[in-house]
């Protein structure tokens, strides 16, 4: 028998009141995420994958169904589940230096000053920002801001990182470097990561498991792909290429492109 999942999502639906009736964004999502797993939620823009992520974070409520972490219902946000944003400029505190941004969460834990300093130094070093500790976010590049966001998140030692298209706004070269860094940090810390993306190659490069969602409304899980390939994964590797083709085939086969009628 498999060990109990860290996070379990059961028959979750989400609908909104919209003009002209009810808009059903997510319809019947079942998903288990194991401790230490790297899961990618892959889907087109507007399919509800960010909504699902925010529900796991506890910022949005499911219309029906249950979300649990370690068997306990998720009904509010908590620091064991750290949400992580694409727009690092907005998510960081622009009036605090890099070190102070990391300190924010540590202070709230009333850690002794010395322990705070050590933790800050450790995580800034982990993301390669040790020399930029006294810079403000506006003085950092896009990639550096994302690394600072990672350091700030890891410093409070959450169990789960919930990442919402974190590298979507970066240029392709920086994004590749961030993938390498994230994988290195993940292998170092063994955090559970739920990573939302609309980029197939990004999902294939990173995930243990790829969860493909259909386009909304009534978005549901079209297919899941277990990716048991060694990292770093090169797109020239035949096994990686075959997986890319398989996912693209599933999408072109209609699983992600199909549009169902809006129920009213």
């Amino acid at each position: 028998m498999a060990p109990a999942p860290l996070i379990s999502v059961r028959r979750v639906t989400k609908h909104y009141q919209a003009k002209g009736g009810r808009y059903v964004a997510l319809d019947g999502i079942d998903l288990d995420i194991a401790e230490g797993e790297f899961v990618c939620l892959l889907g087109a823009s507007g399919c509800g994958k960010s909504t699902l992520l925010n529900m796991i974070a506890g910022f949005e409520k499911a219309s029906s169904g249950t979300l649990e972490m370690r068997g306990r219902s998720i009904d509010s946000s908590g620091s064991e589940r750290m949400l992580f944003f694409q727009d690092a400029g907005a998510a960081l505190f622009p009036w605090l230096t890099a070190a102070e941004n990391v300190r924010f969460g540590l202070k709230l834990r009333s850690l002794p000053r010395k322990a705070q300093d050590d933790t800050i130094a450790r995580y800034l070093a982990m993301v390669g920002l040790a020399e930029h500790a006294d810079k403000f976010p506006s003085q950092l590049s896009g990639g550096m801001k994302q690394r600072l966001q990672i350091a700030r998140a890891l410093a409070i030692e959450p169990d789960v990182l919930l990442m919402d298209e974190p590298f979507g706004a970066l240029d392709p070269l920086t994004r590749r470097r961030m993938h390498e860094e994230l994988l290195r940090i993940w292998q170092q810390t063994r955090k559970t990561i739920v990573f939302v993306t609309h980029d197939i190659s990004e999902a294939v490069a990173l995930a243990d498991r790829i969860v493909l969602l259909t386009v909304g409304p009534h978005s549901h899980i079209a297919a899941t792909f277990s990716v048991d390939l060694p990292r770093p994964r090169q797109s020239t590797d035949p096994a990686v290429a075959a997986l890319l083709t398989e996912i693209e085939g599933t999408i072109d086969g209609g699983a992600i492109g199909e549009r169902e009628a809006v129920s009213s």
Partner: peptide, 21 residues
Amino acid sequence: PVGRERAARCLGASGLGIVLK
């Protein structure tokens, strides 16, 4: 930004702390 407030909540801030910090 919604993201900033949510990040602060994940980091452990709440209530008046969110408003002031």
